[in-house]
Design a binder for these strands. Structure first.
Length: 184
DNA sequence: ATGACGATGCACT
DNA sequence: GTGCATCGTCATG
């Protein structure tokens, strides 16, 4: 399954991931926000070629690429593409499973603040470097594609300085669990 | 050995 | 909306 699902352009995968279910050790929910990073994209970590950090991006599709951001947060991507070096950043999840554990890990109770950002969702699901390179559809991860096609909105990516004009951020229309609203 | 720089989140104005 | 913590990674000497 994962081969056909993830072996295409990261923009296609980023859109297809909206509405999919993702969990780690039974804690997770529905993906509501993603960003695409292509191997020829200046904003992609793979742009400068393979290094120790980004090695997972050059491995098989359907695996996790986990990196540390600002020395503080973890961020979770899923490796994809028809050529090595592309991935989709998971930016927000609507929490459905393991809410109590998430609240504990985040120190918050508001469901809308548990997974509404790439660093937040990694804290809520307890994603760390240990998960770098693991298949996204095998334990401890669980993955299920969206049952039906969702209504999707797009816009510019967040927090980058290069290729900031590419509209490669996607979200579930009307969701209250986004990291930020989409511009009109 | 050292320095610059983040695919962020949170506290505060 | 603005400021800043905090440290791994990579390029350079």
């Amino acid at each position: 399954m994962s081969a056909t699902f993830f072996a295409r352009h990261p923009v296609d995968v980023a859109r297809a991931l909206i509405g999919a279910r993702l969990a780690l050790a039974g804690v997770g929910g529905v993906i509501v926000e993603t960003e695409a990073y292509h191997h020829e994209d200046p904003a992609s970590h793979s742009h400068g070629g393979r290094t120790a950090r980004n090695a997972a991006m050059f491995g098989p599709v359907g695996r996790a690429y986990v990196y540390r951001s600002y020395g503080i947060h973890w961020c979770l991507n899923i490796v994809c593409g028809s050529d090595p070096g592309s991935a989709v950043l998971i930016r927000a999840i609507e929490p459905t499973d393991g809410l109590e554990l998430m609240r504990q890990r985040r120190g918050l109770s508001d469901p809308r603040q548990l997974c509404s950002g790439p660093g937040k969702l990694c804290q809520a699901l307890a994603v760390t470097r240990e998960h770098d390179g693991l298949p996204i559809d095998h334990a401890p991860f669980a993955f299920a594609p969206a049952a039906s096609s969702a209504e999707i909105v797009g816009g510019p990516r967040i927090g980058i300085s290069k290729a900031a004009d590419l509209p490669w951020r996607f979200g579930l229309a009307g969701s209250r669990f986004l990291s930020r609203p989409f511009p009109k």
